[in-house]
Write a protein that binds this DNA or RNA. Structure first.
Length: 155
DNA sequence: GCCAACGTTGGC
DNA sequence: GCCAACGTTGGC
């Protein structure tokens, strides 16, 4: 079992948007970075938990928890010329891009800002802190526990 | 809005 | 296969 952190710009898709979906599930589509693709295709498994992170806003923040409900499968938005994520090099026979499905779980009792994450020495090795742009990031068990505790979610 | 970091593209 | 140019991400 791994833990994950998924980034999203809330103006594009937010944690509340996930909550407000009828089934509280969402295709995590549109990832067009090979390192992130490899995680989605090979590593992200149903039942694994995700830190839902809002990026590219004045105060970037981990807002809540989600759960993977379906592991990697071809990102069909890449096949659709009308999609903004269309990629003519990807085909159903040989898909380049993959996605997973996630489900809303719960908000953190207290949101955890990037500023607080940066100032915690236990979190210094997170890609997030190392200024990685990676949008799908693995989270160690220690980092997971630390952030949940900071978010008022201990036990 | 700036710009550093860094991923991708394409000429050679 | 190198690497300069270019585009994108995302914190600030």
């Amino acid at each position: 079992m791994s833990y994950w952190l998924f980034k999203t710009e809330p103006g594009c898709f937010s944690f509340d948007d996930l909550k407000n979906r009828p089934a509280m599930t969402e295709h995590w589509d549109g990832v067009r970075n090979y390192q992130a693709r490899n995680f989605l295709r090979d590593r992200v498994q149903p039942g694994e938990l995700v830190l839902f992170y809002h990026s590219n806003i004045p105060e970037p923040v981990v807002v809540g928890l989600a759960e993977v409900v379906r592991g990697g499968y071809p990102d069909f938005t890449a096949f659709d010329p009308a999609s903004e994520h269309f990629d003519p090099k990807s085909s159903p026979d040989a898909p380049t891009w993959f996605m997973v499905d996630v489900r809303y779980v719960a908000p953190l009792r207290q949101q955890v800002t990037l500023e607080r994450i940066r100032s915690n020495p236990f979190l210094a090795d997170m890609p997030l802190v190392r200024r990685s742009r990676l949008s799908i990031q693995p989270v160690t068990e220690e980092e997971w526990r630390t952030i949940l505790a900071m978010g008022g979610m201990e036990n």
